[in-house]
Design a binder for these strands. Structure first.
Length: 424
RNA sequence: GGAGGGCUAGUCUAAUUGGUAAGGCAGCGGACUUGAAAUCCGCCGCGGUUAAACGCUUCGGGGUUCGAGUCCCCGGCCCUCCGCCA
């Protein structure tokens, strides 16, 4: 959410940002509604002021004077009621519009339609060369008996899978290694609720708009998280932090659940696009300082790059173009790891900078040394997401016989083995 | 699921049986001091304003009333006990 004052003072800039992001929103209507809102609010508050002083007075009055004053206040109370109900309906529209207004992207974000227009910033690592016909991760998974997709589908439908044997150890190994690194980097690890209330979904800007992508438990009015970003960023919902305690480095580990509605026929093979996966997510809450935000954005991006380097798969970093940005982000980098079966880099990480966009929705503030209350800035980035990263690991490290060399850093989690061998 | 108790600002704790949230502690700023402690003064829920004014705030939402922390209804959460349970 943006500051309404900012929108009022920079309507063209806000409209331009929405245009760049290809997000339709009626700013003129919003300004109109805002004006009505302020007018009604003022009327209402004036009458309430009148009511409050009169009420004090009434307590002191006696007899006829009292009766008269009460009668007069009765009509004031009715006017307040009618103005407030008008205000209420205006607020419904106002709030709905406010939640739609996108965060204008950074100046230097390239303009574009979709991920085709993302700009590559750097490539790291050498692509593997095979002197045999490489297998994809689905084949490898079967051969090694570490991935069972048919039975996952049998139990839970399309986009479901089962990890087995070294597949499980590999996934937990990566997650554990990632957690260990997070702690070393000063992040506070957190295990968070997977089911959250509306406020967390709205606060992190997944709602409104993303309802189709989330699993919802209607009976309990709770939603399964698509990422630990949601509960971790919402951790300090409606709190005022001490400036001295910033920045806060948090990392959440959780399963992630996504309906993947509207993606039928896309990435149907294998573990690339699935309903449930696990992730370690970095979240930073910092002061409202654009420079600090930018630094932290580079920081969390670099952290993930270093982890990918440790794992040893080639990757590239792209600057996401305006049309591929979501509503809340100022700027986003995707890290994409090499996936031989796709013949391309596939997105494994998403590093986002929001400024105070989420913080406003979450009422996440801090008090500075002068006593001023200000909305924080938030950022987040995937640290590692599995099993998607397994696609790269398995496919890049495969050998002629279908065996897969385990990245060195993960071997201790697999009982020290160096190679996962075909089972039969 | 059943029974009972509770929820007031960071925290603790009050509020004429309906009259518009009083205080203590912690914290922040200042004075005094060589420094600190003690003491004294100010600030110390949110919004709003250049600053005021003013509005809002007693778990949330309704209602009664000129006026609700207080009375009524619906819901939430916490604690204790019982039952069930990994």
């Amino acid at each position: 959410m943006l500051d309404i004052r900012f929108i009022r003072e920079n309507p063209e800039l806000v409209k331009e940002g929405a245009r760049k992001k290809r997000i339709p929103v009626d700013i003129d209507r919003l300004l109109e509604v805002d004006e009505k809102r302020r007018k009604l609010l003022q009327e209402s508050e004036n009458l309430k002021a009148e009511k409050n002083t009169a009420s004090q007075e009434i307590a002191r009055l006696r007899g006829e004077e009292k009766t008269a004053a009460i009668a007069e206040m009765k009509s004031v109370a009715e006017r307040i009621k009618s103005i407030d109900s008008e205000l209420e309906s205006i607020l419904i529209e106002y709030n709905a519009l406010m939640l739609q207004v996108p965060n204008p992207p950074d100046e230097d974000v390239p303009e574009g339609e979709d991920d085709q227009d993302n700009v590559e910033l750097r490539r790291v690592g050498e692509l593997p060369k095979f002197d045999f016909e490489p297998r994809d991760h689905v084949e490898l998974g079967e051969l090694l008996d570490i991935i069972d997709i048919p039975r996952g589908v049998k139990l839970a439908g399309a986009r479901s899978y089962i990890l087995k044997n070294e597949g499980v150890l590999l996934e937990y190994g990566i997650l554990m290694y990632a957690l260990k690194k997070m702690v070393e980097l000063g992040f506070t690890p957190m295990i968070v609720p997977h089911l959250v209330k509306d406020i967390a979904m709205i606060g992190t800007a997944y709602f409104p708009g993303g309802e189709e992508q989330a699993y919802t438990c209607e009976r309990d009015n709770l939603h399964l998280i698509g990422t630990a970003e949601v509960p971790v960023t919402s951790y300090h919902y409606d709190e005022i932090l001490d400036e001295k305690s910033l920045p806060r480095y948090y990392c959440g580990i959780s399963s992630c659940y996504r309906r993947e509605a509207g993606t039928y026929g896309k990435d149907t093979k294998g573990l690339y696009r699935i309903h449930q996966f696990q992730k370690v997510e970095q979240v930073i809450i910092c002061k409202a300082d654009e420079k600090i935000s930018a630094e932290k954005h580079e920081f969390i991006t670099r952290n993930s790059e270093n982890l990918v380097k440790d794992i040893g798969v080639p990757y590239r970093v792209v600057l996401v173009c305006s049309g591929d940005l979501g509503q809340p982000q100022k700027r986003k980098y995707d890290i994409e790891c090499w996936m031989p079966s796709r013949g391309s880099y596939g997105e494994t990480h998403s590093s986002s900078k929001f400024f105070d966009f989420q913080a406003r929705r979450l009422k996440l503030r801090y008090r500075d040394s002068g006593g001023n209350v200000t909305y924080c800035h938030t950022l987040n980035n995937t640290f590692i997401a599995s099993p998607r990263i397994l696609i790269s690991i398995l496919e890049c490290n495969q050998q002629r016989d279908g065996s897969v060399v385990v990245p060195e850093i993960l071997r201790s989690y697999l009982g020290g083995i160096e190679v996962i061998e075909p089972k039969k």
